[in-house]
Amino acid sequence: MDKDFAARRRRDLIIAAVLTALAALAPLFIKDVYVQNILILTLMYAALSQSWNILSGYCGQISLGHALYFGIGAYTTELLFTKFGVLPWFGMLAGGAVAAAIAMGLGYPFFRLRGHYFVIATIVIAEIGLLLFQNWEWAGAAMGITIPVRGDSWLKFQFMRSKLPYFYFALVLCSLAWFVTWWLEDSKWGFWWRAVKDNPEAAESLGVVVFNSKMGAAAVSAFLVAIGGAFYAQFLAYIDPESVMGFQFSLLMALPAVLGGIGTLWGPVLGAAILIPMTELTRSYIGGSGRGVDLIVYGTLIVLISLALPQGLVSLFSRAKRKGATR
């Protein structure tokens, strides 16, 4: 069993390295800006969903309020940049730190809640954040912040002429989120989280400090999501509360993981790789009519996938493998 587990982990790492290398070469063949844009978004959502998965998938604390951390990452970076001239690279880390701190601060009261009460609390706190930012004059209120263009540079992480630097950053972020998950999966924390998810009382009785493990998961998860938020802000060069903190982000972060397989290593990546291109393509090819056909198609697919594969798309792979093993 242990040997199997170690072998699986080694295999996962190799697959990830190969995929990353292939992805890194993709821009050599894909010159179309529209397709590049879809790839960037796919990688970003894969990273976000992977981060969300740490708290909600592995540790079982379903959060539908991660838009809060996404928005905080975006706002911290851009407020520091536009008001104090702090480079986005530092702003990004500051945003991550602020988000992690807020996640832990909120964790104190929140982690006492269970089930629906917890989920609704996470939605509500993100909604409060959204309303506060919409009314915060200094931070641009509902108008948001336009990031001043200072020319292409890695220093300011700003590129107007090419999307490639954003692509590579998104790739690094996605790989990082994956690697952190991979690494944590086999650590003390990973085992604690799964124990907390399955049966908190039993875990507690065996010496797992349930509360601390939830806090740890929340902090890591919020930090990574905030980095994603900072990236998104630099990528769009414009942010407003609704577009970085809206409820739809919380759902969009959860959706790839759920469709791909919640609480699994590959679920978020797989889910994002299918969901995001699908979203973008339906939007641009049949959404142009403005009559909502894209919504109908998109919604129907979500209903069908979630009903047909409650354990996510990864269950297809494990099912195939099990069949192979019995043969």
Binding site: I62, L64, G115, L251, A254, L255, V258, L259, I262, G290, R291, G292, V293, D294, L295, I296, V297, Y298, G299, T300, L301, I302, V303, L304, S306, L307, P310, Q311
Partner: peptide, 25 residues
Amino acid sequence: KANAGMVQIFSTFGLAIVMRGLAQF
């Protein structure tokens, strides 16, 4: 059997999107 809560959330969320789309249409 697995993830019943999430399946309920996202299947009804998908339904909500479809209904909004249909209303728009």
